[in-house]
C-alpha cells in the first residue's frame, strides 16, 4: 500500500472502481483479464514465439486500413478503377493507406509462414496442441484466399486477368469446380456482379471466418498455455537429470566387477505354487 492510500479516496476513483466492480460482478471480465494477463508462462520463451502475435497485429492493421479503403472504394466495374485512382492520387494519405494494405498483405503472408515454420520446428503442434495447429492451418488458408480475392478489386488489367485465370482454375476442379466457379463469378461470365461478389467475400465472408478462427486459436493458446521451447534451460536441465538418473540406475544394477546383470526372468517360468491348497 502506497502512502497515498491514507485518507478518503478521490470520489472519481471511487466511482470508477464501483463501475468496474459492477461490470465485473456481472461478467467476470476483470477477473478474466487479470487471469489472462498475469497467468504464468514458461520462464524462457523464444523471440520466434512473437510471430503469432505479429500476424494478428498485421491482421488488425489490414482490418483498419481495409475499413478506410472501403469508405472510398466503389465495387462497381464502371467506377472501381476510378475510385482506386482517387484513393491513390487525391485522398489525403490515401496512397499510404492503400500501400499499407497492399504491403500488409505480403507481410502477413510472410509472417504467417514464419509462424508456421516456428511451430513446426519447435514441435509445438504436438499433444495437447493439435487442434490449435488445425485452427492455425485454416487461418493460413484463409489468409491466402484474402490475397486472392483482394487482388481483383483494384480492377486493373493485371488483376482482372489473373483472377480470370484463377476462376478458370477453380472451374477445372472435378464435380464441384464448375459450380464453385459459377458462384464466384455470379454467373457463367465475368461481369459487374463478379466484382461486388469478390468485394463481399473479401470484406465480409473471409474476415468473419478469420475473426472466428483467431478467437478459437487464442482461446486454445490461453487455455493450453504457450509451448516451452524444446531447448529452454529448464528443459535441458530436466533432460540432463533424467539421463543421469537413467545411467545411475544402470550402474546400480552392475556390482563392483561390472559384470552383466543376470537375466531377471528365468528362461522357463517355474510353475506357481498355489498357497493354502494343502
Amino acid at each position: 500500500m502506497a502512502t497515498t492510500d491514507i485518507g478518503p479516496k478521490n470520489p472519481a476513483v471511487k466511482a470508477g472502481e464501483a463501475a468496474f466492480d459492477y461490470v465485473d460482478k456481472r461478467t467476470g471480465v476483470k477477473t478474466g483479464a487479470k487471469w489472462f494477463m498475469f497467468r504464468n508462462i514458461p520462464a524462457e520463451t523464444s523471440w520466434f514465439q512473437t510471430l503469432g502475435f505479429t500476424a494478428m497485429a498485421l491482421f488488425g492493421m489490414q482490418a483498419i486500413t481495409g475499413i478506410i479503403l472501403a469508405m472510398y472504394y466503389k465495387p462497381d466495374p464502371n467506377s472501381a478503377y476510378q475510385s482506386i485512382e482517387v484513393i491513390t492520387n487525391e485522398v489525403t494519405w490515401g496512397w499510404l493507406v492503400r500501400g499499407m494494405h497492399k504491403w500488409g498483405a505480403s507481410a502477413m503472408i510472410v509472417v504467417v509462414f514464419l509462424h508456421l515454420g516456428r511451430v513446426f520446428f519447435f514441435g509445438s503442434y504436438k499433444y495437447p496442441r493439435e487442434l490449435t495447429w488445425v485452427t492455425g492451418a485454416i487461418l493460413l488458408i484463409m489468409t491466402m484466399f484474402m490475397g486472392l480475392t483482394g487482388y481483383l478489386l483494384v480492377w486493373d488489367q493485371k488483376a482482372y486477368w489473373a483472377t480470370v485465370v484463377a476462376v478458370n482454375i477453380t472451374a477445372s476442379a472435378p464435380i464441384v469446380g464448375p459450380y464453385v466457379a459459377d458462384i464466384l463469378r455470379a454467373g457463367p461470365e465475368f461481369g459487374p456482379e463478379t466484382l461486388s461478389r469478390f468485394y463481399s467475400i473479401h470484406m465480409l465472408v473471409i474476415p468473419g471466418g478469420m475473426a472466428t478462427f483467431i478467437g478459437l486459436h487464442l482461446f486454445l493458446i490461453s487455455k493450453l498455455g504457450i509451448a516451452e521451447p524444446p531447448y529452454s534451460k529448464r528443459r535441458m536441465a530436466v533432460e540432463r537429470a533424467e539421463e543421469e538418473a537413467r545411467r545411475a540406475a544402470e550402474n546400480e544394477r552392475l556390482p563392483y566387477g561390472r559384470r552383466e546383470v543376470p537375466a531377471v526372468a528365468p528362461a522357463t517360468p517355474e510353475p506357481q505354487k498355489v498357497e493354502g491348497a494343502s
Binding site: L58, M61, P77, Y81, I84, E85, T88, W95, L96, R98, G99, M100, K102, W103, G104, A107, V154, W155, D156, Q157, K158, A159, Y160, F190
Partner: peptide, 18 residues
C-alpha cells in the same frame, strides 16, 4: 510495412478492358 509503402509507392495498372 509503413516503410515499404513509402519507399515503394503503390501503383495502379491499366484499367480493365475485358
Amino acid at each position: 510495412v509503413i516503410g515499404m509503402s513509402i519507399w515503394h509507392r503503390v501503383e495502379i495498372g491499366e484499367p480493365v478492358n475485358p
